[in-house]
Nucleic acid binder design. Structure first.
Lengths: 203, 203
DNA sequence: GAGCGATTGCAACGACGGGTTGCAATGAAA
DNA sequence: TTTCATTGCAACCCGTCGTTGCAATCGCTC
């Protein structure tokens, strides 16, 4: 072992330094900023620690690896995604109300970073599960109530799986944002919803 | 500089060692394998070089950075994606014929790795462009001819943008594969195409 | 076959970031 | 006041990226 002796007595500036929960929040928040700013590849744990005014060691004491840190940050942002779903009176209005905030988030810097991280890391499963459960919610989420109302109004064709519609809408947004690099305008979102509700075949 | 002196005389085993183009091909091919096997994060340039039976230096002499290497490998696989598009006699058949091979590729290990890399790296733009051009092809690609035939048959509703349909289909597959972690079965693909052709509204 | 430029292997190197460790100092609760 | 968990800090190990200075080799031309 034979460690080298310590330096004389480095002065500490610990006056009022926060501990516990505040540290956790600060680090996770900075992690999201860092992800949005420089992406998953350019993210440096040491820089996050510095910007959270915390030592690198303290970060590693909470999240054993960099992957764990990213995963925790993602869970945080997704958990805050409890969409309030008003009844707009039509299926079209309801779908737009459901998809618009999601699309806006995915199109933002943070959203794209989250998406990249979710797809790149092996924690993808956990992240996707959280997101899906938030929206689908096993019969009690916003998607389920949307479908229930549409069926009552006679706007839902038999045999269409709700999760298929949702996955297709979100997938289209992902394709638009990550591969086409196109803007997600209200106009574009409207065409997307029209496509899904009316289909390509003439009526 | 004052470099340390060389070792006595390391024996070389260069007999019949390939040069030029064969090296390039071998490395790019191994890069794809590596990507599929361990993902973008786990990829090591030195391992690729070893498996291609080439020195790390030779790899860096061709592609200055690891990103450039990945980008080159992706371009290779996408360029080989010239879809032959038969006329199946119906829009539904044509769309299925267009989407099925793409979906199968995206669902494979290599496809998922390509997708991850395309979304993670800053070379995403180039990669997506290559892919889009291959399919859309500015009026001469498989997508354009599919649309032309559908319009002639009266199967295409006015005002539907071809690229919107394509992006939505591919996006749905991406969502399915990367986030839902679901299987891309013929049955699932059929439901997806039905959704896009007939829509959610009852007919 | 001799000569020549381009290509390669090889070993070592600098830089950097991930993750760990030993210890002293501090904070908050008992 | 005592006690224990939490933090800062500096140093460390280790693996990977990308570079460099050769010497050996290949393939081609004369």
């Amino acid at each position: 072992m034979a460690r080298t002796p310590r330096r004389p007595a480095a002065p500490r500036r610990d006056a009022g330094r926060p501990r516990g929960a505040p540290v956790t929040e600060a680090v996770l928040s900075r992690t999201l900023e860092e992800l949005a700013a420089v992406g998953l590849e350019g993210m440096r744990v040491e820089r996050i620690a510095a910007r959270a005014e915390v030592n690198k060691t303290s970060v590693y004491r909470r999240w054993p690896t960099r992957e764990a840190l990213v995963a925790a940050a993602l869970e945080g942002v997704l958990a805050s995604f409890s969409t309030a779903m008003p009844d707009t009176g039509s299926l079209r209005g309801d779908v737009l109300a459901l998809v618009t905030p999601i699309a806006e988030f995915l199109a933002s810097d943070t959203g794209r970073a989250v998406l990249r991280a979710a797809m790149a890391s092996s924690s993808a499963l956990a992240v996707a599960d959280v997101a899906a459960r938030a929206v689908e919610g096993g019969g009690r989420g916003p998607l389920a109530s949307l479908v229930r109302r549409a069926r009552r109004r006679g706007e839902w064709r038999r045999g269409v799986a709700p999760t298929l519609l949702f996955g297709s809408l979100v997938g289209a947004v992902i394709h638009r944002v990550m591969l086409e690099h196109g803007a997600v305008t209200p106009r574009w979102l409207a065409s997307l919803v029209t496509l899904h509700l009316d289909g390509v075949h003439p009526r």
